[in-house]
């Protein structure tokens, strides 16, 4: 039961964080604000990868 709760909590934190990061990229990708959408996407991927690698050893 405790293991399942671990997974649920961590999955929730990851979904909110990674979802938020990619939502920001998605909303701003067409804006003419001088920010390159591709490098924004790469940053979102890097942050997401860090978070997944951070959580993975703890739940696996």
């Amino acid at each position: 039961m405790a293991g399942v709760l671990d997974l649920v909590y961590v999955a929730l934190a990851l979904v909110v964080a990674v979802g938020g990061v990619f939502t920001v990229w998605w909303v701003g990708r067409d804006l003419d604000d001088g920010v390159d959408a591709t490098s924004d996407l790469l940053r979102a991927v890097a942050v997401s990868a860090f978070l997944v690698l951070l959580a993975w050893p703890l739940v696996s």
Partner: peptide, 18 residues
């Protein structure tokens, strides 16, 4: 700062679980 905020919040949350 945006990346640090997201990583900081998730890390503290995950740390508080484990």
């Amino acid at each position: 700062a945006g990346a640090a905020v997201v990583i900081g919040i998730v890390s503290v949350l995950v740390g508080s679980i484990f």
